[in-house]
Design a protein around this nucleic acid. Structure first.
Lengths: 343, 343
DNA sequence: CTGAAAGCGCTAACAG
DNA sequence: CTGTTAGCGCTTTCAG
């Protein structure tokens, strides 16, 4: 049916071994036979069979990426990074996007199946002892993005610093009451961002007013990283009596900030006039929405992760490396004007 | 090294054929042996080798998706749809995201490699005669999303109707001068949306003022489907003398509309007060930005496409089907208030 | 420089 | 119900 090395061998009067050598540009093949083989091959429209190669070579030329769908924005950018680097290699990308958090272990299992891929990039997924064991026992090269485990290569961002920077900015702009809109407490990056906030506050001899902290009680399956969670979160803050109401808000993710902005608008507040907002991530839309935020170099994180994975696949026995980027504050309109002195 | 059916066969005192049967739940295996095999298998931590199965079965349990990265928003949603349906099957997804349009043929080639995947979903990629031939000769099941070819299954949206609906809405709101912000003319969906606009205008005895049409001259590699193209497009429209300046704008994609909104804001125009805007797609953010738009059921298109692909893989000889969804107008704030009677 | 032959790990007739 | 035996298409020693 489709053409194999046997067909080529026949037509070119060589053995299949030679054909194979030619296609793997093995040095010891005479130029004349090489040429002849190539000729026949193109004439017959030959193309190596991926599965057969995988089986024989014991590698697949595929890497897989496991991602909780919740991080769709974040992931799109990381994906861009992966693709950027992968395009220069001849690896293909298997994507396991878990629609809900409950599904990620299932996807992980599929990604880890023997003979499926040569390595994997695990995005925004905390690696518990259990998962760590699983990963270890699979003996698959793994690199983590947006999470951390001492035994595995990882690339992430300093969320504590980022959180601190966010409030610092707001404090410097004169805000006294700063609201915090957070995804579910399970989210490690969110915990860290919050910790940063509290550190900075403490450093200034202040503390977080519990009424100003709202944790997403919705969208559990996405850990609260949604526009809706941000929207509802803002609404809750706006229920506070005017004199207790925050004059600025830090939303732990740009998507959430977007929802918060809408809630503010619906409540008739103008931003930054009545309320200032800062997000986290700097997803593609944020610049156009004018959102002040803390930028994570998502694409770069993706390419670096891929680079590391490729390296680890060729040299499995190097000690794990941990790269931590520092998020950069990008000031835009949502913290644009002077703070209104509304009591 | 890793455990194979031979190991299991040894330990369970059966032949490898039996082991294979058990794992493919073949009916004719006695319950006792089945159990024994499973026992040994789990004890030894056996897991079938994907490549070996692929080679022997002559299928990969993988489908691939080829997408120009330009459509990232649109694609995220379609991807969600693919994943939704794929999760219920045991197919994995190979993603070939081309960063630039020039790369899609390359990615297509990789996706088409013999033994890589069992079928493919091609998103937002026009199928020219050349590509059509390639696809046909590969004898790979293919379904098109957001494009059309008579010989291939396709699912898309009625862009002409959508375009018409967009202007109709604006005309009904009393606008006389309507701007059109378009991606590059090469984009077939964009051509259709424009055609719809012109039809509707013609039906009302009007015509498009060439000064009101701006085609993206930037971001060629993405066909102009970017925020920046929308931003620049709007700026160009705003360069018109006030009496010729459009009072409403139809941007052929939500991303572009987002850019247009920003340009308007920077120019000090308020939306919808000074300018009304309608987009196309209804990407996730649009609801939160309050953008009036024409909704494409992206997730549904993804699941349907997958459904069709799965069907075609099992029954290759059915005639191609073509599903066309009708985009639905979703009215939000950007066409919210009454039209200002500014001359 | 090239060929013969033994796998890679699993599936699928074909016999029993 | 179960085992034997060919493959699937390619890579890779091992000889020559």
């Amino acid at each position: 049916m489709s053409v194999t090395i046997y067909d080529i061998a026949d037509h070119a009067d060589v053995s299949i071994a030679t054909v194979s050598r030619v296609f793997n540009d093995h040095p010891r093949v005479s130029d004349s036979t090489r040429e002849r083989v190539f000729d026949v091959a193109t004439r017959l429209g030959y193309e190596p069979h991926a599965s057969a190669q995988s089986l024989a070579r014991k590698n697949t030329r595929i890497v897989s990426a496991v991602v909780p769908m919740m991080t769709s924005f974040f992931f799109m950018e990381v994906l861009r990074g992966l693709q950027d680097r992968l395009d220069e290699s001849d690896y293909d990308l298997l994507v396991y996007a878990a629609r809900t958090l409950g599904r990620v272990d299932g996807q992980l299992g599929r990604a880890l199946q023997r003979g499926r891929s040569d390595g994997m990039i695990l995005v925004s997924t905390p690696v518990s002892g259990d998962r760590a064991r699983r990963l270890a026992s699979s003996r698959n090269p793994v690199v983590l993005v947006d999470s951390y485990h001492e035994d595995l290569d990882s690339v992430s961002v300093d969320n504590v610093t980022g959180g601190a920077e966010a409030v610092r900015h707001l404090l410097d702009r004169g805000h006294e009451r700063i609201g915090l809109i957070l995804p579910l407490a399970e989210s490690v990056p969110a915990q860290d961002r919050r910790a940063g906030v509290e550190q900075e506050l403490a450093a200034r001899g202040r503390a977080l007013d519990p009424r100003h902290v709202v944790v997403a009680e919705w969208d559990h399956e996405q850990h609260g990283y949604t526009r809706y969670a941000g929207y509802r979160g803002m609404q809750k803050l706006l229920e506070l009596p005017p004199e207790a109401r925050p004059t600025a808000v830090f939303a732990a993710a740009d998507v959430m900030a977007l929802g918060a902005l809408r809630a503010a608008r619906e409540a008739g507040l103008s931003v930054p006039g009545d309320l200032e907002v800062v997000g986290f991530d700097d997803v593609a839309s944020s610049a156009y929405v004018g959102l002040t935020t803390l930028r994570q170099p998502m694409v770069e994180m993706g390419t670096l992760a891929t680079e590391l994975l490729l390296r680890r696949m060729s040299e499995p026995d190097t000690p794990p490396s941990h790269t931590v980027f520092v998020p950069r504050l990008v000031v835009r309109e949502t913290t644009g004007g002077p703070v209104s002195e509304t009591a």
